[in-house]
Amino acid sequence: MTARVSRETRAVAIALLSTAVLAAAIVVVATRSPGWGAFRAYFLDWAIYRDSFPEILHAFWLNVKLFLVAEVIILPAALFLAVLRSLPGPVFFPIRALAIAYADLFRGVPTILVISILGFGMPALGLSWLPQSEFFWAVVALVLVYTAYVSEVYRSGIDSVHASQDAAARSLGLSHGQSLRLVVLPQAVRRVIPPLLNDFIGLQKDTALVGTLGVVEAFKQAQIDQSATFNGTPYLVAATLFVLITIPLARFVDWLVARDKKRQQAGRAA
């Protein structure tokens, strides 16, 4: 018992020490660098940080709305796409092929290009019945791109459910749809919650790309403040806001993964 406690104490001490050494090394290298003064003046100007914070926070609200609205659409749309891709039989080949083509296309094209092409291109068509708002097209672009990613996550989840589960369900008389809905998906979705949240974090960050359409979100507001002051500190403000919102989610994902692992190990022991 005491041996274990001392081992733990020692581990904590080593962790603290190595962290302190690393931090000290970074600080020394940075502050001793020839351009440190210029770097600090450019990126770490507290007065500018304070002054630009309220405006950037206000603009950040747009990012929050963007990723919330987009995520609500992405989660079911991606699941639907994944299910389409897992449809069995030769009859559904064209649907499977389309689903694959879609995923390939939108995972391949850089997000900023999808946003620019839709955001500038669609209003340029001059069709009065098409929505014109940047927000609308930004959401469409983010949904198109992230649905492609997220559907792959779901698909890996579906594939990870052993085929015997489906076979067992079918042998009980369930249809393919019923088996999918009642047996496969509940297990598949639970398994992929961590990677789903991971993609959600990616989505949050990619809302910064929407500024290219002219709407003032956090990054664009930071850019505005930077060019007004010729100082890069506003970028640090934007970075702070993004980190503040993603860190709790990241820790939550870690916790979920740890809990899952524990459960699986407990299951094995039993």
């Binding site: 340029a124 001059g126 014109q132 940047e134 290219t212 002219g214 664009k220």
Partner: peptide, 21 residues
């Protein structure tokens, strides 16, 4: 209404042309 801010002259001109601003 909040003003729009474009990265390039071209994007701004495009927005004026297609009526976004």
């Amino acid at each position: 209404s909040s003003p729009k801010v474009y990265d390039t002259n071209d994007a701004a001109v495009q927005a004026l042309k297609n009526g976004r601003i």
